[in-house]
Structures are given as C-alpha cells and as structure tokens.
Design a protein around this nucleic acid. Structure first.
Lengths: 190, 190, 190, 190
DNA sequence: GATGAATGAGTGTTCATTCAT
DNA sequence: TATGAATGAACACTCATTCAT
C-alpha cells in the first residue's frame, strides 16, 4: 500500500511533466493530469494541496532525479579540469535523456514560481557554484563571482541540450566535448 | 489621428509587455491589458485579432525595437574582435535597459508560440549567426556550426543580463566586458 | 440626394436580407451588414434606430416587394378557381425567385419579432384570408374558419417553394400545378 | 445515482426547451439554462460539449419523446385511410400537448443546425414518408414524390397545431378532423 | 483513500450601439 | 450626412477546487 501511494504520487508527477512538455504550463489542466495519471481529479488533491504545490514539488522531484545521474563517474582524485568536463557532459546528457525535465525547467525558471522558492533554487545551481568556488580557490579560474560563472555555465549546458533535442543542430559526442571545451576556455585563467 | 491610432496600439503593446513581466503569460488577462492601456476590453480587438496575435505581434514589436539599438557604434572598418565586443555589449545593454523585453522573450521562446514563427525567429538570431559566419570565413573562430555558436552566445548574453537585472549579482561595466571576454575566449581559435 | 438616401437604405435592407439567408439571424452582425452594404457601421443607425427596427422594417420591405408580383395576371372577371391557382402559383413563384425572402420570413415568423407586429402580420396573410372569405361567401369552399384556411394554404405554398429551392425535390411546372391542385382539392367543397 | 445523472441531464434539456420557447434560440444563454435547471453553468458542460451539442441533442431528445406518442392506437389491420387520420391526429395532438417542442422544431428546422444532421433529420419525417410510400404502392394516393407529399402533410400538421396553440383560432376536435380530412382529400386519388 | 460530479469565478471574445470628427 | 474607432455588457466556455459518497 505504502508503495501504492508513492506510485500514485509519482504517476501524477510524471504525467504532469510529460504534459507540460507537450502543452506547456497552462495547456495542462488538472483534469488532463488526472486522466493521464489514471486517477480521479480529486485524488491529486490528496497528494498536493494545489496546482501550485504540484508544480513546486515537481521542481523538487526533478532536482532529486538529477542528483543521481550527476555524480556518475566522479571521484575525489580527479583533477579539476577533468571533473569539469565530466560534470558538464553528465548534466548535458541528463537533459538530453530527459527532455521533459529540460522543457519543464525552462518554463519553471521563467515563471512566477521560481522566485518564490529561492531556497530550493539554490540547490538547483549550488552544486555548480560550489564546484566553481573550489576552482577559484585553486586559482584555476578567472576572477569572477562564482554565482555568475555558475549561471553562465548552466545556461550553456541547457542551450546545448536544447539545440540538440529540438534538432536545430544534431550534435555528435565530439561536438559536445567541443562545447564543454568552449565553456572551459571561457572560464579558466588563460 | 493617424498618430492616435499608432499610439493606442503602442499603448496596448507596452501594457502587455509590462504586465507579462510582472505576472507572466497567463497572469495577464486581456481585461488587465485593457485597463493598463486605458482602453476598453473590446478595443484591443480592433488592433489584434486575438490574444495570440497580440503576443505574436508583441514579439515582432520587440524585435523591431531592438534593431535600432543593436547597430549603435558599429562601422565597417572595425576589426572582428572589436565588433564582437561591441555587439555583445549592445545587446546585453539593451536587455538591461528593457527588462520587460528580456522577460517577455524568455517566456515567449519557451512557449508554444515560438515554434510557430520560425521565419521571424530566424531574424531573431540571424544577425548573430551571420556575424559568426563572417568570423568563420576569416578563420578567426573555432570550427563549429554557426547556428550552434550563435545560440550559445545569445544565451550567454541573456543570462548575463538576467543575472544583473534580478540582482543576483550586480555587474559593473568591467564585469560585463569580462563576460564578453569569457564568451570571446570560448569561441575564438586559441 | 433623396435618391441617394433611398439607395443607401435599400442597400442596407438588401444586404441584411442576403446575409440572413446565408448566415441566419444571429450570424448577421451589424458590422457585417455595414461592410456588405458598403457603408460605415454608424451609418446604419441614421436609417434604423436599432437592429430590431432594421429587421422589423425588413419585414415590411419584403411585404411591399411581394405585393407587386402577387397581383400579376389577376383580373376581376376570373372565376374563383382560376384565380386561386394563379394566386397560388404567383406566390410560390415569388418565393422561388426570392429565396432570401423565403428564408428571412421563415426565421422572422418563428422569432420573438413576429408576435410584436400583429398589425403588419395581418397584412401578411390578410390577402389570402380575404380571398378565402370571398370563396366562402360563394359557397365554393369547405366550411372552415377563413383564417385557418388561409394559414394552411400559405404554409403549403412556403413548403412547396422550400422543397424546390433546397433541392430536396426538383419541381417541374406541372408539379407546381399539381401541388396547387392538391391544395385546392383540400379546401373546396367536394 | 444513475438516476440522478439522467435527471440532471434531462433537467437541462427541459429547461433549454422551455427557455427557447419563451425567448428563442439566442435569447437563451447558457447561464439562463443553468439557472432554470438549477445547476451551475459549468455543469452543463459535463453533459454537453457545447451549446451546439446541447441543441443537437435536444433535437434528438424531442424526436425520441415523440416516437412514443405517435404510435398510439395504431394496429396493422387498420385500413390506410383510417391509419392516416389517426397518425395525423396523433402528431398534431403531440405538438399541441408539447408546444415547447413545436416552437423548438420550427426554430431548429430553419437554423443552420438542421442541414448538419440529415441522418437524424431523415428520421424526423421518414415515418411519414414511408407511410406515404405504402399508400402510393396501393394506388390510393395521387402520383407525387413521397418526400414532397410527406413534407406537405407535415407542414399542414404543424401549422394546424400552431394556429391552435397561439390561439389564432381555437380548434375543436371536429375541426382537427376536418383539417385532417382536408389534407386527405388533397393527397388521395379523387 | 479514492472518486468524479458539481461548482462558479474568471477567461477570451463578440457585437449592438455611441459619438467625436 | 457619414464615418469607424471606441465602448462595455454579455456570451460561451474553462478549470482549479470541493465534497458527498
């Protein structure tokens, strides 16, 4: 049963994610989410207080989902540059493998929701920021506010993934590395 | 009179822009646009067929507005690098001076509207792309699809402006140049 | 000028008639009437107090138009039966030649307008009724309230014309006479 | 509960019918239907996709309602003439007992809806037409397209009922029979 | 817990009508 | 006279949310 509950909640979250990708934020009424998730409309309100809550939790859900993938292959002995590339690729790969998440985030970040959840939003990019701070301390990177640098990197990653997904330019593995390289050359001390 | 007409249409466009910045796309009902523009609800429909049309025209309107600013200070004799920096700064400055436009574009681009207007959308970034192609031909830039490179640059500019506007990191003139530099170092042949 | 006025008013009436045939009563906004008639929306209100007035006057207009055709070929010496057939055919022919009028009347008669104008409505069928009364006095017809008989006849005529116009059954001249005959056999004393 | 659903849908249909009789087709907004039916505006849309659908279903509803009454007293051994009179009276009586239906049909038939539903519309008068065809085969009736004859008869019935209802001429039972007789004399072979 | 019928405020849009020019 | 931009009440319809079962 406990599993059942979790499953139902998850089904709702996944349905919402999928529908938002297809129809956008306000092309996704609760009734449609319910149908897609195979539950009654009212059921959603057992798990989420409101549509706002659902979307806010969906953000948290995607963040959690991401954490797992993002650490793949990282280990403490890696040097900074190598770590940067792996992180860049990991994140970009995640967005490519989960386009629903990418589209959701793009909409979420530019909606009135995002500003409301600064705490969580910090998590959203804190990881990058902390990594940057590390590089800064080692004197490897340009002298630039880490937060700023983190945002620049992140937007590059998202853009790269988006270009790939939407098919505006199909990217080979080599090209992804090239893009990471481009980012790397932009931030490292020359 | 002719002026009057233009003024009313402009008032509607500007009101919409402002309200979308504040409340987002679907937090901006036509009734509110009307009130803000100081016209009756029905009046909007003399100038725009529908809300969709209004938003689509608003996109075109912002693009036209931008064109004027973007060329400032450019002249044919400039060398490529200098031109790059000026263009970068001009565009970034425009977004900073017109945050409504920045917020509108971010929403617009991630909405179901954008895909519908590829022709115009081409104009949206074609300028950058063509400039990049020029640099490519002169062998100044990395070997990378110009469209891709254009999108990477543009997303960097928007991110920089957004960081500045939202106050997440206040940027001095020096820092803007630094950011442009960062972008430049990323795309030029090292 | 006087002519001009009459012409403009007529243009409005005719446009309304035509549009109502095509789009029905409430598929015919004043703005469309204006466009079709080649006048400004406001101009209509110089000639008609309101849309209701316009429609009411349109009814009167069609009635006047009809009067002219209806008397064709009639002369006092005709015997009653002959006169009946001629009247029947004349009226049916009018509806066939002026389908706009037929469609307008069908809508008008079943709208909230009709009950409001009993005086004019009397004219609408009075002619038939009076003719029937004549036949009654001569003992040619069944014993039945003339008003009732008039309505039965009129509805037969309209139905015949409608069937012909809508193409549900194409009627030859012979068949029209047959229909008139059928009506005649129904009302005359056998 | 199942009953409840049916009841609510029926309440909406009946309210619409009643309001259309009083105010006509476009004097009957959905909000009024809702109020009259004692439901919320949105509720109507659980049962009907749109106002158009509601009206279309209302047509089907009235047709179903009619079928029941129309067969009363008919049995196979009746001779054709007797059957004709009974059918004529049954139908006329139905319209008199259900004036809302009569008024609705008059509007419906002359609206843009009717042409859209030819299949159902066939049912609408097919019964009469088939009966006529039978008479034709037995050589009892004039030589005339059955469809045409059917329409003539039907319009006579409706007109008779309408005259009675609107009080333009109060009809006694004798007079109804007289009217049926008039119709009969019109169509039978003399 | 789960349902889905019911709600009703809110949305985009239309259109008869007015009035400054 | 004639215009047509402007009005705003009214409309069909949507959808987040509630609640009896």
């Amino acid at each position: 049963m406990a599993e059942n509950i979790a499953e139902k909640k998850k089904a709702i979250l996944e349905s919402t994610l999928k529908l938002i990708q297809q129809n956008g934020f306000h092309g996704t009424p609760m009734s449609l989410v319910a149908k897609e998730a195979g539950v009654a409309a009212g059921t959603i309100y057992h798990y989420f207080d409101s549509k706002d809550t659902l979307i806010l939790e969906l953000f948290a859900y995607t963040q959690r989902q991401m954490q797992l993938t993002l650490q793949q292959g990282l280990h403490p002995e890696m040097d900074f540059e190598e770590s940067f590339f792996l992180r860049w690729i990991n994140r970009c790969q995640f967005y490519i493998d989960h386009p629903e998440v990418l589209f959701f985030l793009e909409q979420f970040v530019n909606s009135p929701f995002y500003p409301r959840c600064t705490q969580q939003s910090d998590h959203y990019q804190n990881e990058i920021k902390e990594f940057i701070e590390l590089g800064n301390q080692h004197g490897i990177l340009r002298d630039m506010p880490p937060k700023l640098m983190a945002m620049m990197i992140h937007s590059s990653i998202m853009t790269a993934a988006k270009v790939h997904i939407t098919g505006k330019a199909h990217l080979s593995e080599k090209e992804f590395t090239q893009l990471a390289q481009m980012n790397w050359d932009g931030i490292r001390k020359l």
